[in-house]
Design a protein around this nucleic acid. Structure first.
Lengths: 337, 337
DNA sequence: TGGATGTATGGGAGCGCTCTTACAACGTTG
DNA sequence: CAACGTTGTAAGAGCGCTCCCATACATCCA
């Protein structure tokens, strides 16, 4: 009462009971006389008591927070401008807040930063990690695993390891794009892939190519992009050189698809009349773009929520086997194809 | 050593010194024999010791985390899709990571959520709050102030109160847009404002109108938007009805400006030939849009970093007077006007 | 040479909480 | 009526750390 926040002891004194009894009322309320409970509750009200989470964490070994780690080779903090990460954050936050768990945001874009993340978790500052890793060579999943930190990945790890993750069936997504373009009667189909050292890109591309082959197109002109608008634009330029009579394009994300549309338009080609364009993700640019993008929807928010779900479950029951959840993409037909 | 992480005590035993000495080595390293330091360091290495932040926080009353609170009337978690919040996050994270401070993300979109935020901070789970409040009637700043939580706002509070904040000179930004459109020889100038119950919107609008009046345009057709693409599109539609011969538009953010461009194009009007369009913010859509947007740049990342800076400073020296930092906008001339 | 100063280390309290244990008071049962 | 749960409460240990204070010893000037 003198200084600082009131403690359990203060409340106990006011209520005329022991610290332990107040603790019982604050928490499980197991075996406490209803009348006493009332007294204690009044005392809490009167003192304006708020339990100290830190002190509680020290003994319970639980903090009620998890780390949301964005681990990427490069870029630093501009990842936050990418609509994809916004959606991941939204999905995670939406799920966690219902459980009164709070995410702490961490960037692991350098070796030093990765060490700090591992330390942070080993120190017990957070109960577990949600890892959005952009590169299969990322050493962080293995390090977290080794440190015994409960973790869940967004996207399967680069090398097989006993760790939980959520992922999308990217191959199926690639197939959907191919099927749609072919069904629309397109004959000169090309594709802008994502960076091919990323598993998701590889899979989207493989799925697309397989389906194209099955449809009788053994070779598909391909330009590799980097998931950014600029890279998409330059890829489209290259594609137009290799194959000027292109009439269908599959871009491995919406940002690149949008850029491709602009490039095509600048070349006097109409979308979808002259060239059909299919994107991937179904994020904000898909709707902002004119014409609105036909795209393969990745349910990022749901996947992110599931990732949080898996983590909380493994926190609840430690020692569980790792689990995975694979989501199905969905073709969203709009105006561009 | 038996189970759980090694503690100070374990290290002390291995090094043959006291807990206090190890603590000194781990922290300030004040007055410890260099030779002993070496021994201790080896023991730390050997045991794989990592200080327990929670235990440390309990006594130091500092957690090394701050809350990054997005407080808005509505919407919930789709705020994360807004490029503005991504930039705020980027700015904050970039600054904090250099100081090894970690942001925990909180959404305060309901009264219940706001209470939880206040509790969280009162409990000492974070050292202070960075508050991005979207509405001047938001009760959270006052509640944090009352709870004695060190806080810094992005944007000045709705009602004057002794609290630190960073802000932009929105009026100056509005003026710049007006000056540019008039200087470009536009005569039929209209504007899409932001939601007029938001201070920033009011100021941008007021600055714009004042400058227009000074240039001899006492009345400016105005349609109110909501800072979203859809609202921008519909505002542009309304504007075209009221004033079909419009040749200049100032939209209060880039998202709406981009949408306006699309609507104009759909009406057969060319940008900038027929209609010049100026946006606000200079965020991702400004560059993604074709033509690229002339816009009033708001240095969001810098402002967010400054916000974090002010907070850490006030944590360093408590009892300081609240401070503010007002940033100057900057006209970025691209293709749209 | 002796007290005063300074420096390095250990001991121990205590941060606010949870949880185990001990115990008191009260039935319940053969 | 003795023996035994059952239930409600208090007492106290201890989570891992920091920091104050006491102690031991070296150093210095008068």
């Amino acid at each position: 009462m003198s200084k600082g926040a009131p403690t359990l002891e203060d409340v106990a004194r006011v209520a005329g009971v022991s610290r332990a009894t107040v603790s019982r009322v604050v928490n499980g309320t197991r075996n406490v006389d209803p009348e006493l409970q009332e007294t204690v509750r009044n005392a809490i009200e009167q003192t304006g008591y708020t339990p100290n989470r830190v002190a509680r964490s020290l003994v319970t070994r639980r903090t009620g927070t998890v780390a949301l780690v964005i681990s990427g080779a490069g870029g630093g903090s501009d990842v936050f401008t990418d609509p994809f990460f916004g959606r991941v954050t939204a999905g995670v936050v939406d799920f966690l807040r219902l459980r009164s768990v709070h995410p702490v945001l961490m960037l692991a874009d350098s070796d030093h930063a990765r060490t700090e993340v591992v330390e942070f978790l080993r120190q017990g500052s957070a109960d577990g990690a949600l890892l959005v890793s952009t590169h299969p060579a990322d050493p962080l999943p293995a390090r977290l695993l080794q440190a015994g930190v409960p973790s869940v990945l967004y996207a399967r790890p680069g090398r097989p390891m006993p760790i939980s993750y959520v992922d999308l069936d990217h191959r199926a997504g690639g197939r959907m794009a191919a099927d749609h373009l072919v069904a629309a009667g397109r004959y000169n189909i090309a594709t802008i892939s994502g960076p091919l050292d990323v598993l998701a890109s590889q899979d989207r591309h493989a799925g697309f190519r397989d389906a194209m082959a099955r449809h009788g197109f053994p070779y598909v002109p391909t330009a590799e992009g980097g998931f950014t608008a600029e890279s998409g634009a330059s890829a489209m330029q290259r594609l137009l050189v290799e194959c000027p009579d292109v009439d269908g394009v599959f871009a491995a994300n919406d940002l690149m698809a949008q850029a491709a549309v602009e490039v095509l338009r600048a070349h006097g080609l109409r979308v979808p009349d002259d060239v059909a364009v299919v994107g991937f993700d179904d994020s904000a640019p898909a709707l902002a773009s004119r014409p609105q993008l036909t795209t393969v929807r990745q349910p990022v928010e749901d996947m992110a929520a599931k990732m949080a779900d898996l983590l909380l479950a493994s926190l609840e029951e430690p020692g569980q086997r790792p689990r995975s959840a694979i989501f199905e993409p969905e073709l969203v037909v709009r105006a561009s194809a």
